[in-house]
């Protein structure tokens, strides 16, 4: 059995596994804490490979019982105690493990009222963070590519800490086409843009109630418990009170940055 301490957002996760493949994936994709002696993890995660069958669907079945919550997607099974202190992930392969860790971390930060995992890309500009989100195919990855050489904080799932007065975006390990440097400090989130590809460039600010409606399905969240869902709703309200949300029509070039910053 091997152990390693990783950092996501402000949290330390102690990862334990007997699988060299799983440990390889974790080492390659997450920020490793090299001298973890004396530090205490927020969450213990035990990982096993060899579970289930190849990916077929994003649908996750959730059950509660015996003090645990179970998330089952066919290619992964998560069991986590109701206090979100100790979890076991059984996964089919690296893809399943990545998604299981996203599922677990998202539920963990909502449970602790810390923040949200937002389906989006996030770019650094003038020491501030800007989120780009939208429906599938709206251009989240395209925006990340077009924004070069700006630093990419995420291209798939942005880790966002929400407090009543401030919202910060963290260097995200949950990526699809880019790799985190893990050297970026968290940055103030200055805006969220809902993307729409167009022949023109136009940015229109949304009302707060509309922002809540538009953002709800952009959060990685699997509802199972009304009390947890109320925490998510509270975090979402805080988010849109602090951070402006815009509809952004953009062309496939980086001229939209002139509208934003």
């Amino acid at each position: 059995m091997k152990m390693v301490m990783i950092e996501i957002g402000e949290h330390l996760l102690a990862i334990e596994t007997g699988s060299d493949k799983a440990m390889g994936f974790v080492n390659e994709n997450f920020k490793i804490i090299l001298n973890p002696e004396g530090v205490r993890e927020s969450l213990k995660v035990s990982i096993e490979y060899g579970y289930g069958y190849p990916f077929t669907s994003f649908d996750v079945a959730i059950q509660k019982g015996n003090g645990s919550v179970f998330y089952n997607r066919g290619d992964y099974l998560i069991e986590v105690d109701e206090n979100y202190a100790k979890a076991t992930i059984k996964a089919y392969n690296d893809f399943a493990l990545k998604h299981a860790l996203m599922n677990l971390y998202s539920a963990f930060i909502v449970h602790n009222k810390w923040g949200l995992l937002i389906h989006s890309s996030c770019i650094k500009e003038h020491e501030k963070a800007f989120i780009f989100t939208g429906h599938s195919g709206a251009g989240k990855s395209t925006v990340a590519e077009l924004s070069s050489p700006r630093t990419i904080l995420s291209d798939e799932a942005t880790v966002v800490k929400v407090t009543s007065g401030d919202v910060q975006a963290f260097d995200s390990p949950f990526r699809s086409d880019t790799v985190a440097s893990f050297s970026e400090k968290p940055l103030k989130l200055a805006g969220i843009q809902l993307l729409e590809q167009s022949s023109t460039i136009e940015r229109v600010k949304l009302e707060k109630a509309e922002s809540v409606m538009k953002m709800l399905d952009k959060i990685f969240y699997w509802a199972y418990d009304p009390a947890e869902t109320q925490k998510l709703f509270s975090l979402l309200q805080q988010l849109v009170r602090v951070v402006p949300v815009y509809n952004l029509k953009f062309q496939k070039n980086d001229a939209f940055w002139e509208e934003i910053s």
Binding site: M213, P226, S234
Partner: peptide, 26 residues
């Protein structure tokens, strides 16, 4: 009684936590 409702800029947003639905009223 089991709902979470908030008024923002003159509009109401109502969460139904069990159904995971949100309704906006203006």
């Amino acid at each position: 009684t089991n709902l979470d409702a908030v008024e923002m800029d003159g509009n109401w947003v109502i969460l139904h936590p069990s159904d995971y639905t949100v309704t906006k009223l203006n």
